[in-house]
């Protein structure tokens, strides 16, 4: 605060230059999104001609969303199911495990083992995991089922959630639980009435991040799905592999696929920043 006040009087030109630089950075950051959003409203011919002015059409969205041959609505639904269910699983499992590891007198090495797992797991290329899971699920005939992908995404994001939630648990004072015990709370009551409410911002931050990561995940989804069970990223990748690439439809599908990210950014920016930085700073 004081810095701003101080320099406002002394050197406004510096601030102006900084703002100009930041606006340039914003344009570079958002420009591509704006361009693809515009492209989604063009016809293929207009896009290929490269005209600057054009009259917007909703044709691409109609094709992607309502055409009988389009699988996109199904893909969108698949993504929602996989991301929704796996996020729920991840949060419940990681929450219980994190609480247990931190507050229930496990030997120190067990907590460390989980933290090391969380760290090492980040190093493994998802493609390697995809291949490992592909083999595993093939032996139980689940290889192209949404169940397989949901379980895979749960496993993929569990270490991150555990890591984040443990760092948030550490901020909860132990006295709070002890007070609840003294007041006669049982384990589940304690979780439901005391810990969960206190941890809510951390839980939301973790859940938003896990949902986005699951929604965005590509290599594992590519390995574990077929045409019917494909998620949104897999569907978009398919556009490229077609004989004649429908660029504008790809643009429209891309715009629709960015919706969860936009919603998260608009309503949960605070949580996203909290989640993304908590993982690294700790």
């Amino acid at each position: 605060m004081s810095d701003i006040v101080q320099t406002k009087r002394r050197m406004p030109t510096d601030k102006v230059l900084l703002h100009v630089a930041m606006i340039a950075a914003v344009i570079i950051t958002l420009g591509p999104f704006v361009w693809i959003a515009l492209s989604a409203f063009k016809t293929q011919i207009v896009l290929l001609m490269g005209d600057i002015t054009f009259s917007p059409v909703s044709y691409n969205f109609d094709e992607v969303l309502f055409d009988r041959r389009s699988t996109y609505p199904q893909n969108f639904l698949n993504s929602l199911i996989v991301a929704g269910v796996s996020t729920t699983l991840v949060i419940v499992i990681a929450f219980l495990a994190g609480y247990s590891l931190l507050r229930m007198n496990w030997p120190r090495w067990i907590l460390n083992a989980f933290l090391v797992w969380a760290m090492l797991f980040n190093l493994v290329p998802p493609v390697s995991l995809a291949s490992a899971w592909y083999e595993l699920f093939r032996t139980v005939n689940l290889s192209i089922d949404l169940v397989a992908l949901t379980l895979a995404h749960t496993t993929l994001n569990l270490p991150l959630a555990l890591w984040l939630l443990i760092s948030f648990f550490r901020e909860v004072p132990r006295e709070l639980e002890e007070a609840a015990f003294v007041d006669g709370a049982k384990f589940l009551t304690l979780l439901r009435r005391v810990i969960v409410p206190v941890m809510m911002p951390g839980i939301v931050a973790t859940a938003v991040l896990v949902f986005i990561f699951s929604w965005n995940e590509f290599p594992v989804a590519l390995a574990l799905t077929n045409n019917k069970t494909a998620t949104v990223p897999v569907a978009i990748a398919k556009y490229v592999q077609e004989e004649e690439i429908k660029y504008t439809q790809m643009a429209a599908a891309s715009v629709l696929s960015a919706i969860p990210a936009l919603i998260a950014l608009i309503f949960g920016q605070r949580f996203i920043v909290k989640g993304l930085t908590a993982g690294a700073v700790k």
């Binding site: 950075a25 950051t29 897999v234 556009y239 990210a261 920043v273």
Partner: peptide
């Protein structure tokens, strides 16, 4: 600025690829 800068992190990598594939296109 802080809010807007975060956007690319949240977008699926595949879509980032799609966007840039269009932007890099030789023709248009």
């Amino acid at each position: 600025y802080r809010t807007l800068f975060i956007l690319p992190i949240l977008i699926p990598g595949i879509i980032i690829g799609a966007i840039w594939r269009l932007m890099y296109n030789f023709q248009f």
